Amino acid sequence: NMECRVCGDKASGFHYGVHACEGCKGFFRRTIRMKLEYEKCERSCKIQKKNRNKCQYCRFQKCLALGMSHNAIRF
Results as ranks from 00 to 15, higher is better:
Glu37Pro: 04
Cys41His: 05
Glu3Leu: 09
Gly23Leu: 10
Met34Trp: 10
Lys49Val: 13
Gly17Pro: 04
Asn71Arg: 07
Tyr16Trp: 07
Asn51Thr: 12
His19Gly: 08
Glu42Phe: 09
Ser69Asp: 15
Asn53Lys: 09
Cys58Gly: 01
Tyr57Leu: 02
Gly17Met: 08
Ser44Cys: 08
Arg74Val: 12
Ala65Gln: 12
Arg59Phe: 11
Glu42Thr: 09
Glu39Asp: 10
Lys54Tyr: 15
Arg52Tyr: 12
Cys58Ile: 01
Cys55Thr: 05
Lys54Leu: 11
Arg33Cys: 14
Arg33Leu: 14
Asn53Pro: 04
Leu36Phe: 08
Ile47Lys: 04
His15Met: 09
Val18Glu: 05
Glu22Phe: 06
Gly8Leu: 03
Ala11Ser: 10
Phe27Arg: 02
Lys50Phe: 14
Lys40Ala: 09
Cys7Val: 01
Lys49Phe: 11
Val6Lys: 02
Ile47Gln: 08
Cys45Gly: 02
Arg74Gly: 15
Cys7Thr: 01
Ala65His: 06
Cys21Ala: 02
Glu42Ser: 09
Asp9Phe: 06
Phe75Ala: 15
Arg74His: 14
Arg29Ser: 15
Lys35Pro: 04
Phe60Val: 03
Lys46Ile: 14
Arg33Ile: 14
Ala11Asn: 07
Cys45Ile: 01
Cys45Met: 04
Ser44Val: 10
Lys62Ser: 03
Ala11Pro: 08
Ser44Thr: 11
Arg29Gly: 14
Ile32Tyr: 09
Cys4Gln: 02
Ile47Thr: 07
Ala65Asn: 11
Arg33Trp: 09
Leu66Asp: 04
Ala20His: 03
Lys10Gly: 08
Thr31Glu: 00
Asn53Cys: 06
Leu64Glu: 05
Arg30Met: 08
Ser44Met: 13
Phe14Val: 13
Phe27Thr: 02
Thr31Phe: 05
Cys24Arg: 01
Lys10Phe: 06
Phe75Leu: 15
Ala20Lys: 02
Gln56Asn: 09
Phe28Met: 08
Val6Leu: 03
Phe60Gly: 02
Gly13His: 04
Asn71Leu: 05
His15Pro: 07
Cys24Asn: 03
Arg43Trp: 07
Leu36Trp: 07
Ile73Met: 15
Ala11Gln: 04
Tyr57Glu: 03
Met34Ser: 10
Gly23Pro: 12
Gln61Ser: 07
Cys21Ile: 03
Cys55Arg: 01
Gly8Ile: 02
Glu39Met: 08
Gly8Trp: 01
Gly67Ser: 02
His70Asn: 12
Ala72Arg: 07
Lys10Ile: 11
Tyr57Asp: 06
Glu39Trp: 04
Ser44Ile: 07
Asn1Phe: 13
Glu22Gln: 06
Phe14Glu: 13
Asn1Gly: 07
Val18Gln: 05
Met68Gly: 01
Cys24Lys: 03
Asp9Val: 06
Cys58Ser: 01
Arg43Val: 08
Lys10Tyr: 06
Gly17Gln: 07
Ile73Gln: 14
Lys54Arg: 09
Cys24Asp: 06
Phe27Leu: 02
Asn51Met: 11
Met68Arg: 02
Lys40Gly: 04
Arg52Asp: 14
Lys54Ser: 10
Gly23Trp: 14
Leu36Gly: 07
Cys63Lys: 01
Gly8Pro: 00
Ala65Phe: 08
Cys4Met: 04
Leu64Ile: 11
Tyr16Lys: 05
Arg59His: 12
Asn1Val: 09
Lys50Leu: 10
His19Thr: 13
Lys10Gln: 14
Asn71Phe: 04
Gly26Met: 10
Lys54Gln: 12
Lys35Met: 10
Gln61Tyr: 07
Leu64Thr: 06
Cys7Gly: 04
Glu39Gln: 10
Cys58Phe: 00
Glu3Val: 08
Arg30Ala: 05
Ile47Tyr: 05
Lys35Thr: 06
Asp9Gln: 05
Arg74Lys: 14
Ile32Cys: 07
Leu66Glu: 14
Glu42Tyr: 10
Arg52Asn: 10
Glu37Ile: 10
Leu64Met: 08
Cys21Tyr: 03
Glu37Lys: 11
Gly8Asn: 00
Gly67Tyr: 01
Asn1Gln: 07
Tyr16Val: 06
Phe75Lys: 15
Met34Asn: 15
Ser69Leu: 11
Cys55Ile: 03
Lys46Asp: 15
Ala20Ser: 08
Gly13Thr: 07
Gly13Ser: 07
Ser44Asn: 14
Gly26Ser: 12
Cys63Gln: 02
Cys7Trp: 00
Arg74Pro: 15
Glu22Ile: 08
Gln56Gly: 12
Lys50Asn: 15
Tyr57Lys: 04
Lys10Arg: 12
Arg43Ile: 05
His15Thr: 08
Leu64His: 06
Ser12Asp: 11
Met68His: 02
Ser12Val: 07
Phe14Tyr: 13
Leu66Met: 14
Glu3Pro: 05
Lys54Glu: 14
Glu39His: 06
Arg29Trp: 15
Gly8Ala: 05
Thr31Arg: 02
Gly17Trp: 00
Cys45Arg: 02
Gly23Ile: 07
Asn71Ile: 05
Leu36Cys: 09
Asn71Val: 06
Gly13Asp: 09
Asn71Pro: 14
Thr31Tyr: 04
Ala20Gly: 01
Arg52Leu: 10
Cys7Tyr: 03
His15Arg: 03
Lys49Trp: 12
Glu22Pro: 06
Asn1Ile: 15
Ala72Asn: 10
Leu64Arg: 05
Cys58Met: 03
Asp9Cys: 06
Gly13Lys: 06
Arg30Thr: 10
Glu3His: 11
Gly23Arg: 08
Tyr38Asp: 01
Met34Phe: 12
Arg52Pro: 15
His15Ala: 09
Gln61Gly: 03
Leu66Lys: 12
Cys4Ser: 03
Cys41Gly: 02
Ser12Glu: 09
His15Leu: 07
Glu37Asn: 13
Lys35Ile: 03
Phe75Asp: 15
Ser69Thr: 12
Leu36Asp: 04
Asp9His: 03
Met34Gln: 15
Lys25Leu: 14
Leu64Gln: 08
Asn51Ser: 11
Tyr38His: 02
Asp9Leu: 03
Lys46Cys: 11
Arg29Thr: 15
Cys45Tyr: 05
Arg30Phe: 07
Gln56Cys: 12
Cys21Lys: 03
Arg59Lys: 08
Asp9Lys: 04
Ser44Asp: 13
Arg74Met: 12
Gly67Met: 04
Asn71Glu: 15
Arg33Val: 14
Gln56Thr: 06
Phe14Ile: 12
Tyr16Glu: 12
Gly17Val: 03
Ala11His: 07
Gly17Lys: 01
Phe14Arg: 09
Ala11Thr: 09
His70Val: 14
Phe60Ser: 04
Lys40Cys: 07
Cys55Ser: 01
